[in-house]
Amino acid sequence: MCVKMFSCLLKGLVGLNLLDVSGNLFSAVPRHLPPSVQQLYLSNNSFSGLHEGSFEGFHNLKYLRLSHCGLQSEGIHPQAFNHSSLVELDLSYNQLTTIPTVPTTLQYLYLEANKIRGDVITH
């Protein structure tokens, strides 16, 4: 018997490339999603934070959208976005006061409409 109904409904979609679950009532990243997902859209949910393993199992994740989720800097683990495959990350319209740690492979980073102050330092 499958306990997590949402995860069970998606379990058989082994070739799923894009999953858009924006505008729902998720308070955390849904677990046990198909690992084939390359584009994950989670905007307009209410996340309390992102821990180190929030996106664990997404080995091909390239595009991640987390705009309008109420995210705060202190709620994002430094390794939350530790995916070498990640190309695009949308963190716009949140409550960020600092820029989170992101992979060097990132090509597009959206941070508009947050509360970030100070100089942007690149290494």
Results as ranks from 00 to 15, higher is better:
91 L>R: 09
64 L>A: 07
54 S>E: 05
68 H>F: 14
88 E>F: 00
54 S>A: 07
77 H>W: 04
74 E>S: 15
92 S>M: 09
50 L>M: 08
58 F>Q: 10
87 V>A: 15
54 S>D: 14
43 S>L: 10
67 S>I: 05
71 L>A: 01
77 H>C: 01
62 K>G: 13
61 L>F: 04
49 G>K: 10
76 I>D: 05
60 N>R: 13
57 G>H: 07
41 Y>R: 14
44 N>I: 07
58 F>D: 07
45 N>T: 02
72 Q>K: 12
89 L>R: 00
68 H>G: 03
41 Y>E: 13
69 C>V: 04
83 H>A: 02
87 V>G: 07
51 H>D: 11
91 L>P: 00
81 F>P: 15
92 S>A: 03
76 I>V: 02
75 G>T: 03
59 H>Q: 09
53 G>V: 01
62 K>F: 04
48 S>Q: 11
90 D>T: 03
78 P>F: 12
52 E>W: 04
47 F>V: 01
62 K>M: 05
63 Y>L: 09
42 L>C: 03
80 A>S: 05
79 Q>V: 05
58 F>Y: 12
54 S>G: 07
42 L>N: 13
54 S>N: 13
77 H>E: 03
86 L>M: 11
42 L>R: 14
52 E>K: 11
50 L>F: 09
63 Y>W: 10
49 G>P: 12
52 E>G: 01
64 L>W: 05
56 E>G: 05
83 H>F: 06
79 Q>L: 13
68 H>A: 12
46 S>W: 10
65 R>A: 03
44 N>T: 11
61 L>E: 10
56 E>N: 06
41 Y>A: 12
43 S>M: 10
78 P>T: 08
42 L>F: 11
44 N>D: 08
49 G>F: 01
85 S>H: 12
82 N>K: 15
42 L>Q: 14
42 L>G: 02
58 F>L: 04
67 S>M: 13
48 S>A: 10
43 S>W: 06
83 H>R: 05
61 L>I: 01
46 S>E: 06
46 S>P: 02
83 H>D: 03
84 S>M: 14
55 F>E: 00
43 S>Y: 13
50 L>E: 07
80 A>T: 04
65 R>I: 00
82 N>Y: 09
91 L>H: 08
84 S>E: 15
54 S>F: 05
79 Q>C: 08
85 S>A: 05
41 Y>N: 12
43 S>N: 13
88 E>M: 04
43 S>D: 15
75 G>L: 00
82 N>L: 01
76 I>T: 09
61 L>W: 05
54 S>V: 01
67 S>F: 04
69 C>Q: 06
57 G>P: 07
77 H>I: 02
85 S>R: 10
84 S>Q: 09
72 Q>M: 14
78 P>G: 11
82 N>H: 14
60 N>F: 12
41 Y>W: 12
81 F>R: 02
42 L>H: 14
54 S>L: 03
81 F>S: 03
72 Q>L: 08
57 G>C: 04
49 G>Y: 07
67 S>Y: 14
70 G>K: 14
82 N>M: 12
56 E>F: 07
82 N>D: 15
77 H>F: 06
74 E>K: 15
